[in-house]
Amino acid sequence: MNVLDLVRAFFGDGAHWHGYDGIPARLAEHVTYSLAALLLAAVIGLPVGLVTGHYGRGGNALALIATAGRALPSFGLLVLMVLWTGLGLVPVMIPLVVLAVPPILVTTYEAVRTLDPSPVDAARGMGMSEARVLFRVEVPVALPLILSGLRTAAVQIISTATIAAYVGLGGLGRYIIDGLYQRDYEKVVGGAALVASLALSTLALFWAAFRLTVSRGVRARA
């Protein structure tokens, strides 16, 4: 049986569409974890990235933090957190946020720092306050890159959120972990297909967000 047959069998089985272990329920759980982690990471990464990028300072410190964040293994962090805090949502959120902050932070910093300085100069010359310069001039032009950082983070979160199932939580990882222990490849492949589809849908969503929010004057920058 090849992978495509397994996918077909998984989605064709009516039992996979109902109840607490049904696809809609697992998908909703997975989306919830991912969104929560992405929001948390954005709340941390965006302001820090914007401000450091605006003033062009702290790049080296940022690079160190980002490297350290990337170097921490998500799976190990999850196991460690469970040992320290017990089962629950918190030990799952921590590795996901640690995973997602570096791309958001670094891309946002770079996006703002590498902007053409002349419009920023012009804005200051017109008497705009620093906050106004940041939000009216820098962010709109930096937006394509900022979005690409969020997109990278989102895709990584979605793929990594599968490990939540290892510590008893739900989400699409359930199918993969259960499938692994039950030697049920149909479940594993079905779960993987679901995660991949979710990741690709997220890419499409970001593409739509890009079309909606990025000025046509700066689209070439992406």
Binding site: V155, S159, I177, Y185, A192, V195, A196, L200
Partner: peptide, 15 residues
């Protein structure tokens, strides 16, 4: 490559 990247590592291993 984008599609391959979106497959979770664990699922990849298991297959």
């Amino acid at each position: 490559t984008t599609v391959l990247y979106s497959i979770p590592s664990l699922a990849f291993f298991v297959v």
